[in-house]
């Protein structure tokens, strides 16, 4: 092979690498992330996409190159080169994918365990216990909850988080709505409000058919199944309003089964909870009548129920309801 073609090959290799790396970081394929574990997902996704882009470019490049370089020339009805194998080449293209797969498998395992936070994200309590024992065994010194941004460091599960969610919410899926129960306050709501940076555990079940709880900004999804309880644990890390999407076919109106999730400061979350409880004092359990998303509606409801405008101060003393 001539020096020139070597230089061209190296050039192509560099171009390929740079393109793949660039695309892996600039794909704009994902919504903003809003949970502690979402950056882990994004980082793994970006790396995988980088490799996938590289393989894609190599295969398509070779296809286009052969289509041009080895096209049949006019009048040439002969056969091509009768070469039918090359052991070294075959070993190379078996080994390289094997190594990539091994890397991806191990990284996925790391990220999965880190997203889990040591608690089984799956269904049965048995699996949850097994997983947390497994993670306990490999637990490392506390690096702090914020240190979760990089996918390829060994799993770091801050000890205080393992199995100790700061808020538990019971989720019920039904055709075609989500209902959220806050067991500590007995509050029942049609929308999910969560405090920022607190570990949340959702205990989910379905009343009729399978549903799936999905918040794209959290990169988390879990089927919600009648007759069994499934779990999801995460730490919301960005204030805002996010869609809760049902991702498992649940009937004709599956597409419109959407809920809303509000990540709020702990103070605002507390305030919201108190508002809801105050709104329907006579009952033990209350239904959220004042969705924050429709503030005009909320104001009307508040007026109708005679809630004073300075409710927030009133709530400071109203903490007895939170028990």
């Amino acid at each position: 092979m001539s020096a020139l073609s070597n230089i061209i090959l190296v050039g192509i290799g560099i171009l390929l690498t740079v393109t793949s790396l660039w695309y892996g970081q600039n794909h704009h394929l994902l919504p903003a992330s809003a949970a502690n574990s979402a950056p882990l997902f994004d980082s793994l996704f970006n790396s995988t996409l980088t490799i996938a882009t590289g393989i894609f470019l190599i295969v398509q490049g070779v296809l286009i190159y052969t289509a041009i370089r080895y096209r049949k020339r006019r009048g040439d009805w002969g056969d091509g080169d009768p070469n039918h194998g090359n052991v070294l080449l075959e070993i190379v293209w078996t080994a390289i994918p094997a190594v990539i797969i091994l890397w991806l498998g191990l990284s996925s395992l790391d990220v999965y365990q880190a997203i889990n936070g040591g608690v089984g994200m799956g269904g049965h309590t048995h699996s949850g216990m097994a997983a947390s024992e497994m993670t306990m065994a490999m637990e490392e010194p506390d690096h702090g909850a914020a240190d979760s941004g990089y996918a390829y460091t060994p799993v770091v599960v801050p000890g205080k988080e393992v199995g100790k969610p700061e808020l538990v919410v019971q989720v019920q899926g039904m055709q075609y709505a989500w209902v959220f129960t806050y067991p500590e306050s007995g509050l029942v709501a049609g929308e999910l409000h969560l405090p920022l940076n607190k570990r949340v555990r959702l205990e989910m079940t379905a009343l009729d058919v399978n549903h799936a709880f999905w918040v794209p900004q959290f990169r988390l999804k879990q089927d919600v199944i009648p007759g069994r309880e499934t779990y999801l644990e995460f730490v919301p890390s960005q204030l805002g309003e996010y869609p809760i999407i049902c991702a498992e076919l649940c009937g004709p109106y599956h597409g419109v089964m959407a809920g809303q999730l509000f990540v709020e400061t702990p103070e605002a979350f507390e305030r919201w909870q108190q508002e809801q409880i105050l709104a329907t004092r006579p009952d033990d359990s209350t239904l959220a009548l004042a969705p924050q998303s429709e503030s005009a509606f909320a104001r009307a409801q508040q007026q109708r129920l005679g809630i004073p405008a300075d409710i927030h101060q009133a709530l400071q003393q109203g903490s007895q309801f939170s028990g």
Binding site: L44, S108, Y112, I115, M121, P216, R219, A247
Partner: peptide, 9 residues
Amino acid sequence: VPLDIHVHD
């Protein structure tokens, strides 16, 4: 697994 959890369904 972690990537599939987001894109499944």
